[in-house]
Simulated assay, not measured.
Amino acid sequence: MPTAALSDFNAMPSVGGPLLGDAEFQFLRDFVYKHCGIALGEQKRQLVQGRLLRRLRALELKDFSSYCELLRKDPHGELGELASVISTNVTSFFREMHHYDLLIDELLPRWLEQKKNGGRLRIWSAGCSTGEEPYALAMVLAEALERAGSKVDARILATDLSPQALEQAHAGTYPLDRMGGVSDERRRRWFLRGEGRYEGYACVHSRLRELVTIQPLNLLHEWPMRGPFDAIFCRNVVIYFDKPTKQRLFERYAGLVEPGGYLFLGHSESMHGLSDAFELVGRTVYRRRVA
């Protein structure tokens, strides 16, 4: 699932393009809800039409009926592209810094001490978008490992549904104007300045790549990993899910987080009334209850 859910900007359809009929829009609403967990209201019709016109042109399809037929024949083959089209990946390095402060000041030192005799440390960035979140996590993890002189087996899993977002996450190359959340010290330490055709870009250090595994994943479908995770970051992903979808997702997270482990949500998200498996311990920070 892309990191940010459905965009709210007013996308107007191109003049002269095919119209999104009632039957096609209802099919797309059902399809997106089933496979992405996003409920598209009637007020999103113009946005969907405007966004999908570009996809129709790329596929050389004449109308939305043809696109719906493509989804019927190969739902999984086109799902990632559809999710990318109707969603907006809004993310940045060290967004919601208080989460990283908690990791740096308390959680990582504790985990590394607990696991120094052979344990594993695992963090999952669920909805990693274009990679800024997992690479920011990798920076603080690498720094914590150095401070502790630790050789703990530590890894970050980064997953998303969007093929375009994952392509950039794999590349690890970002425009300099998107580096605002990274301190000068960390820029010097963890990034290489691009040259030639990469002028104006920064590329993540190989050490960060070693810590991060990037994989495609739909949060609503089967999960290949078994955990356990010390922490899961699922920020700005569930805000547009309906209540039953959120409840199912949080239940699944509870099955993968260590008792006493942590789940981090976005600033507009809450687990209130949705799960008894976690307790609120900070600003959008939840801890898995210990039985």
Rank of each mutant, 00 (worst) to 15 (best):
M1D: 11
P2W: 15
D8C: 09
M12F: 11
S14V: 15
S14T: 15
G16H: 09
G16M: 09
P18K: 10
F25V: 00
F25G: 02
Q26I: 08
F27H: 05
F31K: 00
Y33A: 08
I38H: 03
A39N: 14
E42Q: 04
Q43F: 08
K44E: 07
Q46M: 11
V48G: 01
Q49V: 11
L52W: 04
L52R: 00
L53W: 03
L56P: 07
A58I: 14
A58W: 06
E60D: 13
E60M: 03
K62T: 15
K62A: 12
K62D: 15
D63Q: 09
F64T: 13
S65G: 12
E69R: 12
L70Q: 07
L70D: 00
R72F: 01
K73P: 02
K73H: 13
D74R: 08
P75F: 05
E78H: 13
E78F: 08
E81G: 02
E81A: 10
L82A: 00
A83P: 02
S87H: 06
N89D: 06
F93V: 02
F93M: 02
F94G: 04
E96L: 02
Y100V: 12
D101G: 08
D101S: 07
P109Q: 08
P109L: 14
P109F: 11
Q114P: 01
Q114L: 15
K115T: 12
K115E: 09
G119C: 07
G119L: 08
G119Y: 14
I123R: 05
A126L: 10
T130Q: 03
G131N: 14
M139H: 01
V140I: 10
L141N: 13
E143T: 11
A144F: 12
L145D: 01
E146A: 09
A148S: 14
V152P: 04
V152D: 01
A154V: 15
I156E: 02
P163D: 07
L166N: 01
E167F: 14
A169T: 14
H170E: 15
H170S: 11
H170Y: 15
Y174G: 02
Y174A: 02
D177L: 06
R178T: 10
G181Y: 06
G181V: 11
V182M: 03
V182Q: 08
S183C: 05
E185R: 02
R189F: 04
R189W: 10
W190P: 02
L192Y: 15
L192G: 04
R193Q: 13
G194F: 12
G196K: 01
R197Q: 12
R197M: 03
E199D: 13
Y201C: 05
Y201S: 10
C203P: 01
V204Y: 06
E210D: 13
E210L: 02
L211M: 03
P216E: 13
P216G: 06
N218I: 04
L220T: 08
D230W: 14
C234L: 07
C234D: 09
R235C: 06
V237Q: 03
V238Q: 01
D242H: 00
K246V: 03
Q247W: 03
R248G: 08
L249G: 00
E251A: 08
G255H: 05
L263Q: 04
H267D: 06
H267E: 04
S268N: 04
S275L: 03
T284C: 05
Y286G: 00
R287P: 07
R287Q: 15
R288L: 03
R289S: 04
R289A: 01
V290F: 10
A291R: 15
A291F: 15
